[in-house]
Design a protein around this nucleic acid. Structure first.
Lengths: 334, 334
DNA sequence: CTGTCGAATGTTATCGATAACAAGGCGCGG
DNA sequence: CCGCGCCTTGTTATCGATAACATTCGACAG
């Protein structure tokens, strides 16, 4: 038969030890249905003694429902996403639900594979970044019938509901601000080899506004790797040493922008007189910098919270896009 | 019978559509056993047509084994842990495994509850921070038979294998460095209301070494909330305004230390002449600060990678403690 | 021409928990 | 004293995938 010693105890084992049926064990341990005080005590004693741990796989299979939520993130290397994840996690934990997650490193194919993988756990919902996905991903998710929340971006057509902000509008707002301050020759520094589509949208909005005002983009530099301060620093050096010297640089995010600021400090350049700088996200570490950076604050934790609430089914959201807004923070670099 | 429309397609549905038995479907889709080209084609066509997604719950239940690894973290609010998690995730992903995780917010009881919860998914392994756990947690994990890796800390008795560094020794090393530079009156600034036991160990090592050298701790300040730059700044202000003014401050981590540095810059104090500062972790953002902070670099990603490898069973590790080391980085603040 | 072997396929049982249904026993109203 | 109904407990079937075993059929050696 079954070798008890190398198997984790099951309700069957408890039943045997307590001299009752498995069903009674189930009823006692879940506190549903009725059981005599006598049976209750014996079962609880046996369960404790055997060190019983329920097997959720069985319950989930039987119930055709899990307390899992799939979460897909572009990377964990950027604080932005760990903050979104923190919002999701705290919200789920309050409801006894678990996140299962994976990272795509900005690769749509990896995202597609992850979606397939994660859906096979039959999660209650799935949260994923952005509105653009590999061919078929959208259909797969729709067909799966799980609740979906897309986060970060609002510029596009959500699968179901998107929680975030208009990236294009954020780019436009930044451009308007810079233009108002009198800058006319703009540079752009990005990372992730242009695979960060949200950054591309910000750039598009920025560029559009700049051009409409008769000003221009004079230099762009996009690095391949993850966005790190050192890249921002190098890129800034390149742009400022180039032929087409910008009088203001728009960075794909705060890390890059902070690196740009470092370059200026190291080279003794005066910001914003010699060059103006603007980042994106409003990360906490900006407070530590010697100069307050101009940036756009984004509701990272809130996106996580809202998305988690949505997939848990806390009230159906009518709209397909929930705008959580952004806030331009004019610092000392523009 | 069964209403096809509100159920996700199963192998049974494919079997029906393809006119074969469920078992043939299983064989075709998993590529095990043999099947005729004819059957293979029909099954694949039907599976695609129906948008079949396998149900891992069933497979996991049947196989009594999941590709899951439980990961417990103190918080996501500190970059340190998202870097550990990144190491874990990237390592697992390479082997087709999934992390399931939760955060404790430094509460041992929440940790105990999380362990119970996560173990009920019958993960292949579990990774958790530190060596101290609530009563019973240790026994529960041992009894569960999953592979265990504890990360961050080596000062104590691991459940199975620990990957990290000696926190006490890190504290001692920092103290030796500060003493060698001539400081004699030390302050300490912490957070998490003292619940961060690794920080407490560092302080213990630091204090011991300081006292052995005939120097002393003159002031300590531990905040209740999460460690943030602003707390470090406030704490530093308090210590420097107090009666027992330290000539050097040891911070529980880099965020607090960076805050301390900000205070000094804002007040026009000269570091380290007026006061020396030392942090812990060697986070990347330090590079952005105007002054290079003295700190201790820790192998965060490596801890995640090693722990993940261990729980996946990549070669049994003989030792109970794997020292991944640390490196004191003498900056411009000491 | 027959027996053997293996490829292809089907049938049954299983993992653990639990809904649905069945049945035994006891109390209480009529 | 009978019977209805509730409390307690047990039995069976189920979720989906798959290992183990059973069966069919054609090919081929002897």
């Amino acid at each position: 038969m079954r070798d008890r010693s190398d198997h984790r105890p099951t309700m069957g084992d408890i039943a045997e030890a307590a001299g009752v049926s498995q069903m009674t064990v189930s009823r006692v341990l879940r506190g549903s249905g009725s059981a005599s005080a006598e049976a209750r005590a014996r079962v609880e004693q046996a369960a404790h003694q055997l060190g019983y741990v329920p097997n959720r796989l069985a319950t989930a299979l039987r119930d055709e429902s899990t307390p899992l939520v799939a979460v897909i993130l572009p990377t964990l290397g950027n604080r932005v996403f760990s903050e979104v994840l923190a919002g999701v996690t705290e919200t789920l934990a309050g409801q006894g639900m678990q996140p299962v997650f994976g990272v795509t490193e900005y690769d749509p194919l990896r995202e597609a594979a992850l979606v397939r993988d994660l859906l096979s756990w039959r999660p209650r919902g799935i949260i994923l970044p952005g509105l653009e996905h590999a061919k078929g991903t959208r259909a797969a998710i729709r067909a799966s019938g799980v609740r979906v929340a897309e986060v970060m971006d609002l510029d596009g057509d959500p699968i179901s509901v998107a929680f975030g902000l208009s990236q294009v509008e954020a780019g436009r707002a930044t451009a308007r601000h810079m233009l108002a301050r009198g800058y006319r020759r703009f540079g752009w520094i990005g990372a992730q080899g242009g695979r960060d589509l949200r950054a591309s949208k910000r750039l598009a909005g920025f560029r559009e506004t700049v051009r409409a005002a008769g000003a221009q983009m004079v230099a762009e530099r996009v690095f391949d790797g993850p966005s790190a301060m050192v890249q921002g620093r190098r890129g800034t050096a390149m742009l400022l040493d180039g032929l087409a010297r910008p009088d203001a640089i728009y960075f794909a995010n705060d890390d890059l922008a902070a690196g740009g600021l470092m370059h200026c400090l190291a080279e003794g350049l005066t910001v914003p007189r010699d060059v103006a700088l603007a980042g994106f996200n409003g990360l906490g570490f900006l407070e530590a910098l010697p100069v307050r950076l101009t940036t756009v604050e984004t509701p990272r934790r809130e996106m996580g919270i809202s998305a988690a609430r949505h997939v848990m089914g806390d009230g159906p959201v009518a709209e397909a896009k929930v705008d959580l807004g952004f806030r331009l923070v004019a610092g000392e670099t523009s």
